[in-house]
Design a protein around this nucleic acid. Structure first.
Lengths: 236, 236
DNA sequence: CAGTGGTCTAGACCACCGA
DNA sequence: CGGTGGTCTAGACCACTGG
């Protein structure tokens, strides 16, 4: 038979996807068992297993050992929100990136900060403040506290040549991160540096990154709301 | 022997992860070939292949056929942002959810809307406006335009019993969606319904969903910025 | 209990890369 | 060319689910 040049497991995936997208199999409906698909496509079970397993990872179907496979209740279509280096992000859009460094210093951690970085109150931490420009327009205000144990030489980095995100990713391989995105009004300094009015709403991302046993860094990233948006797209 | 061990492929994954997290293998370093890992762990090649393939999917390593596997340059840790039903989301937090329906009507699409929904200017589209409450507190203002071809009976749905998101997911299986998140000030109506001041910044998500050949719906979701945040976490 | 998916093996052929 | 990963087979044992 003139089978497509697609690998067999992708053909099985495509078949199941199509049934779901066409509405023939609806949420909660059973997906044929591996044995059935194996017969239907004339392939080995490992191949069918791979196909359905990947669909499960993608969230299209739910598998329960001993019970079977069903079409997932909510198509958990999802996109990725990545910890990215703003330098690369801007270049990818075909624009130029520049950084204005406002502060790079040692400070003593107050109780709240120490708790977040899992250090003792009064410990020395590094603190940097800078503004990132895209084609000369300020798009991100970055206020960051760094755990010296994760990046001992942070203070001597030339941030006109690299960014904190990139440097930290290189220094301390990332193992975990948590973030939260809110809307807020900028502080006086933030408004001034971003060249916006104090009344102009901003997107504020707070991000804590963990590298191995250390909390590496806590960053507050402020974006002018009228000039910047997080956007994305997802497909089945 | 009681089988308390981790599956073999997970042991291989854990080993490679550990080398990377400990900094023993740095970005760009080669990962042992499948043949080597196969010897080292005394498992079959399929098992090793699965382990390394999954690490590639997770973004920790980069595989090149014919060349080999190396530790990925930037650990592009990422999380998923899902299209979810707010009803379920609120219940999951252990709170109660209620909806106040403001408008459900037929309207004629202006040029901009028609373009987005891929309809002709002046076509009939459905329009709904409602407010979602979490434990009695307004948390989302939802203004939505729906393509009648994707959900012909949208106008007669009882939105005190289900939500537009859930109904549309059931009616028209989702195949694609795009979103953008901005910060903005609420309109007079939005501020009133969310019980916030007009000066209070909001998170505004604009989401367009596609089901098969139809653009199913265009939604504008407004969240009070001081009361709501998108948050997430990612791990290696 | 029979059926399901989770894992694993010991082979195999192929396409591709770099020397 | 030899080594790499991509795919595939035809079996296998197991843990778990449901009736």
């Amino acid at each position: 038979m003139p089978d497509t040049r697609l690998p067999a497991y992708q053909q099985v995936k495509a078949y199941v996807k199509a049934q779901i997208n066409l509405g023939l199999w609806r949420a909660g409906d059973p997906v044929p068992s591996e044995a059935v698909l194996q017969q239907q496509f004339g392939v080995s079970r490992m191949t069918v297993n791979r196909a359905v397993k990947e669909l499960a990872v993608e969230g299209l179907v739910t598998r329960v050992r001993g019970s079977g496979t069903v079409v997932a209740q909510l198509h958990r279509i999802s996109s990725t929100l990545a910890v990215r280096d703003i330098h690369e992000e801007v270049l990818e859009r075909g624009h130029s990136h520049a950084t204005k460094v406002l502060t790079v210093e040692k400070v003593r951690a107050d109780t709240a900060l120490a708790q977040i970085l899992k250090l003792r109150t009064g410990s020395t931490v590094f603190h940097s403040v800078m503004v990132h420009f895209e084609d000369g327009v300020p798009i991100q205000f970055e206020d960051r506290h760094v755990n010296p144990q994760a990046a001992p030489h942070y203070l001597s980095v030339d941030f006109s040549r690299t960014t904190p995100t990139r440097y930290l990713l290189e220094q301390a391989p990332l193992t975990e991160a948590s973030y939260s995105i809110k809307a807020a009004l900028p502080s006086a300094l933030e408004a001034k540096q971003l060249a916006i009015k104090r009344r102009e709403p901003c997107l504020v991302m707070t991000r804590r990154t963990i590298s191995g046993i250390h909390v590496a860094s806590l960053a507050r990233l402020v974006y002018p709301g009228l000039r910047y948006s997080f956007s994305g797209k997802f497909e089945l």
